[in-house]
Computed example of a mutant assay.
Amino acid sequence: MIKYEAIGMQYGQNVILKNINLTINDGELFVLVGPSGSGKTTLLRMINRLIAPTTGNVYLNEKRVKDYDLRELRLHMGYVLQDSSLFPNLTVGENIAIQLEQQGVNKNDRRKRSMELLDQVGLPASDFIDRHPDELSGGQQQRVAIARSMATQPQLILMDESFSALDPVLRTQQQDLLLKLHRQSKTTVVFVTHDMQEALRLGDRIAVINDGQLQQVGTPNEILERPANQFVADFFATARPRLGTMTALLSSKLVQKTPVADQSAVVTTVAELASLTPDTTGWLCFQYQGQGFRIQTTDLLHYLGQREER
């Protein structure tokens, strides 16, 4: 668990963050979103101590991050930047395994782990492990960067505008990959973006930051349907999905047919479905035209995000 307690940040007279109190739960894909210069990247960089707060404390697993050994803290975290930041003189496999090398893992085990991760991120190890970064496309480099962030099986991965330099098609592919890997690993991910649609697609929960202040924390549905103030409403106004029809959604293969449950809500539109509260495992269970169905909340938001991009 990550906890920000009364965080303030100031450079001279320039106030960056003001009294931020925020908790990120284990296993969440948590998104910090806001306009450029809002303070979200500063918050992220406090976790791995690239930046120290002027006031307050950041806690990781109930221990102040400033009390950790800095090298050990960073060796057990993944970090993915806007550009891949791969070492050009190292092969793909060597880039992925660099933290493992620093931890003293032997060469054969490092290569084996690199091969496993390349396959997980959709880059066949036999084709890519001995290439160099300049032989890869931008999207492929970012996949290698994601693989590198997972090499030590960290409890936490930090991602700072990691897909913003990619074209829309590649960006969607990387978002899909992150969602898949997160479902598989349940690693805590803190993701910074200025793109509200990306925040809605990725976040289990979203923290909205503006002018150094926390505006709202909530699920994507809560942010869209119950904005805390006018800034949040206006910021997400253009990201509101074009919802489409229930027929199109049911044909998307994201929806599972189930026996009709008496307690499930009856819906007639996608808007009604999107307003439902999921159960504790993230499923939205509903009835449509007398039949029972269910869909994962993340899948529904992903679907709605894809419709918006079209």
Score class of each variant (00 low, 15 high):
115 M>Y: 05
13 Q>G: 11
258 T>P: 02
202 L>Y: 02
278 P>E: 12
161 E>R: 01
248 A>R: 14
268 T>G: 13
18 K>D: 02
72 E>K: 14
159 M>C: 09
105 V>K: 14
26 D>L: 05
8 G>W: 01
25 N>A: 13
163 F>A: 09
136 L>W: 13
281 T>E: 06
22 L>G: 04
214 L>A: 14
242 R>F: 06
24 I>F: 01
235 F>S: 01
249 L>G: 13
143 R>M: 12
91 T>R: 10
29 L>A: 01
47 I>F: 03
154 P>M: 03
79 Y>F: 14
1 M>W: 02
285 C>Y: 11
48 N>R: 05
195 D>V: 00
210 N>H: 13
270 V>T: 08
186 K>R: 09
223 I>L: 04
276 L>T: 07
269 T>W: 03
261 A>V: 15
167 D>P: 11
289 Q>Y: 11
251 S>W: 00
43 L>M: 15
204 D>H: 12
6 A>V: 09
214 L>S: 08
19 N>D: 15
157 I>D: 11
295 I>D: 03
289 Q>T: 14
132 H>K: 11
151 A>T: 07
220 P>H: 06
120 Q>W: 08
266 V>Y: 07
198 E>P: 15
63 K>W: 00
301 L>D: 09
243 L>C: 07
199 A>E: 01
8 G>S: 04
149 S>G: 08
244 G>M: 08
303 Y>C: 08
56 G>W: 09
140 Q>C: 00
165 A>P: 06
231 F>M: 06
237 A>Q: 08
166 L>R: 02
75 L>H: 06
20 I>A: 10
53 P>M: 04
164 S>V: 05
208 V>G: 10
25 N>R: 07
229 N>S: 06
185 S>A: 07
11 Y>R: 12
134 D>L: 11
74 R>E: 07
299 D>R: 14
294 R>L: 05
3 K>A: 12
296 Q>A: 12
203 G>K: 08
41 T>G: 03
143 R>A: 15
258 T>W: 00
119 D>Y: 03
154 P>A: 04
243 L>H: 05
105 V>C: 01
24 I>K: 03
65 V>G: 08
